[in-house]
Amino acid sequence: MNISVVIPLLNEQESLQELHDWIVRVMQSNQYSYEILFIDDGSTDASWELIEHLSNSNPNVKGIRFLRNYGKSQALNAGFLEVEGDVVITMDGDLQDSPDEIPELYDLIINEGYDLISGWKKVRYDSIIAKNLPSKLFNWAARKISGLHLHDFNCGLKAYKKVVIKNVDVSGEMHRYIPVLAKNAGFYKIDEKPVQHQARKYGKTKFGAERFIHGLLDLLTIWFISKFGKRPMHLFGAMGILMFFIGFCFAGYLGIDKLFINPEGRLLTERPQFYLAMVTMIIGTQFFLAGFITEMILRSKQDHKNYKIAHKLNLSSIQNSNNINLT
């Protein structure tokens, strides 16, 4: 199969038929073999019923329905586990990403040999105050911390080699950092492509301004994981030893001063250095224990998914026992 298109969505019933028809036209005109995988992230409108209708009329349409809203990262993770195409395209379900970009994205992956191509919305149709300015600040911080020189980390339109999405774990709210996750996994041929961005045709955005705060916190998490995720003791242990050593030096100074230099002076408990030494050694011990406990957790953890699927459509891995009947 040439292409898998993965579309996470929440309450986008007005857009789905038009988006489906647009993708199909692009695929047929380029003679691609394809699949379209819609992931319904707990929609409360008729999105899932429309996905069922599309699946009945087009066997290339597949679907996953979450039991409730879990977030875009979890939707992408569930989709990545199921897709079979050589090239995987992700796009949003609101018609702001253009399926006409698919042939060029496919060519960059297959013929140019890129591992990942991220879309860059050079011209945006979002609110300047609500999205454009915060997005520029967010992308600047992401470039500085991650070392990847992409202009638009949060663009939903991306293309991947199949091997990339099978080797990254998208959890939490890490969907905007998939290029960083791919780089950390060892895929270095990553670039961007300017893409069309269209004004929202139906409904309203599902994301608020708080996503940028969450995004920056997630970016710090990725930075920490990429640096110390496999060796947390190197950070916490080093900090703990340093803090304990500083406290021990203060305590040694106080002991020598009391025994040999000024034995008639104030009691140790009356000197602020005593409490500084004690607190510093306690904090150092706690840092060391935090690193040790984290190492133990890493060695004993088991993989698990933090979402529940209600239904699947046309997917080979479907197991009836794993589906929850909501009817």
Rank of each mutant, 00 (worst) to 15 (best):
E14L: 03
S15D: 10
S15K: 02
L16C: 11
L19W: 13
L19C: 12
L19R: 13
L19D: 12
H20F: 13
H20G: 06
H20W: 13
D21M: 13
W22R: 14
W22M: 09
W22S: 15
V24N: 04
R25H: 13
V26H: 05
V26I: 15
Q28I: 05
Q28V: 09
Q28K: 14
S29A: 14
N30V: 04
Q31C: 10
S33G: 08
S33F: 05
S33I: 02
E35R: 09
E35M: 04
I36A: 02
L37V: 07
F38S: 05
F38M: 08
F38T: 07
F38W: 14
D40G: 09
D40V: 09
D41P: 09
G42Q: 07
G42M: 07
G42A: 07
T44G: 10
D45M: 07
D45Y: 10
A46Q: 13
A46S: 14
S47K: 01
S47V: 05
S47T: 08
S47N: 04
S47M: 03
W48L: 10
E49T: 11
L50R: 10
I51F: 06
E52D: 07
H53M: 11
L54W: 00
L54A: 03
L54V: 02
S55F: 01
N56H: 10
N56M: 05
N58A: 04
N58W: 01
P59Y: 02
P59K: 12
N60C: 01
N60K: 03
V61N: 00
K62G: 00
K62I: 01
G63V: 02
G63M: 03
G63T: 03
I64Y: 06
R65D: 02
R65I: 00
F66G: 01
L67E: 10
K72A: 07
S73H: 06
